[in-house]
């Protein structure tokens, strides 16, 4: 029971962090058709911006300001970079964001060094939020969940209740029509790219302070982020929300479980010992293969349901 509750909480909080990251990516892809390879670089930028700003103005103001700075940079990248590349097609755009990711990486290494910076959890978020049986659930994890849920609510209200949100939804299906009605669709693209990168920046502040802020901080997240987006169905925010939680939960539960194929055979009455064929495979525990599970999910998804959980793409 204790294992279950803690794994659930850890899984949900990690899933929500993934969602903060993948929601911006999904939003940008669904509107502009651009798979933003630099998304994780904006995540890293958020962490470093918050670290540097935090030294001067404190963590909480930096939590607000850093994503805004990142979003502004994102908007500039769209306005003066992507928009120029756009007429040459999606491959050119993809290569542009790919190059941009490296550029940002190098800038971070030159500016802040190759090793991790001491971006620490602020005192207000130290210690446990509550204790489940004997295990403490840290305040920082709770804060991570809170920020992600607030962000989810804000994005939802923005897209469904405001006029700019309606224009975004209109431009999703018929950008030319939205423009012919007098809406400045290129500016909407810029705002969405800026907004999407700001969300990545916000995830970076949280992820940086909860885990680590270093030039390689996004390395493990990049592939997972793409898994989330593909499993969620590429263009669906709700889909990427579900996929984020699913992957968060799979990872947190798998890490704690010592199930193996051998154990399963044992339970079925088949004796398994060192002389059984494929013993080394059979004794592999679920916890040991946990990091590969999201990719297994990705492969299975692409084989059996290529449009993703809630995607609308043709199979």
């Amino acid at each position: 029971m204790e294992f279950f509750v803690i794994s659930l909480l850890n899984g949900v909080s990690y899933g929500l962090l993934l969602f903060m990251l993948s929601s911006g990516l999904t939003l940008i892809f669904s509107l502009m058709g651009v798979l933003n390879f630099a998304h994780a670089a904006f995540y890293m930028m958020g962490a470093y911006a918050a670290y540097s700003l935090g030294l001067k103005i404190g963590f909480f103001p930096a939590l607000i300001l850093a994503p805004l700075v990142v979003g502004l940079l994102g908007a500039l990248v769209e306005r003066y970079g992507l928009r120029t590349v756009h007429p040459y097609g999606h491959v050119a755009e993809l290569l542009f964001t790919f190059g941009l990711a490296y550029l940002i990486d190098e800038i971070v290494k030159v500016g802040w060094g190759l090793t991790a910076v001491p971006f620490r959890v602020p005192a207000a978020l130290h210690g446990p939020l509550f204790t489940v049986y004997a295990t403490e659930f840290p305040k920082m994890r709770g804060f991570m969940m809170l920020v992600a849920l607030l962000m989810l609510l804000a994005v939802y209200l923005l897209v469904t209740r405001t006029r700019i949100g309606l224009v975004i939804q209109a431009a999703l299906t018929h950008p030319h029509m939205a423009e012919a009605l007098g809406h400045n669709v290129p500016r909407v693209f810029m705002l969405v790219f800026g907004g999407g990168t700001a969300l990545a920046g916000l995830a970076g502040v949280i992820g940086g302070v909860a885990f680590i802020t270093s030039p390689s901080m996004a390395d493990s997240l990049v592939p997972i982020m793409f898994v989330v987006v593909v499993v969620g169905g590429m263009v669906s925010l709700a889909g990427s929300f579900l996929a984020s939680l699913l992957i968060g939960l799979i990872q947190s539960f798998a890490i704690g479980l010592d199930w193996s194929l051998g154990g399963l055979l044992d339970a079925l009455g088949v004796a398994v010992n060192a002389h059984t064929p494929l013993y080394s495979l059979l004794k592999l525990q679920l916890s040991a293969v946990a990091p590969t599970l999201p990719y297994l999910l990705l492969v299975l998804m692409l084989i059996f349901r290529p449009k993703g959980l809630l995607g609308t793409r043709a199979d």
Binding site: L166, Q169, A170, M177, H183
Partner: peptide
């Protein structure tokens, strides 16, 4: 705009 209501279409 298929995902929006008839009225939202008009307002846009």
């Amino acid at each position: 705009f298929p995902a929006l209501t008839v009225e939202q279409n008009l307002l846009l």
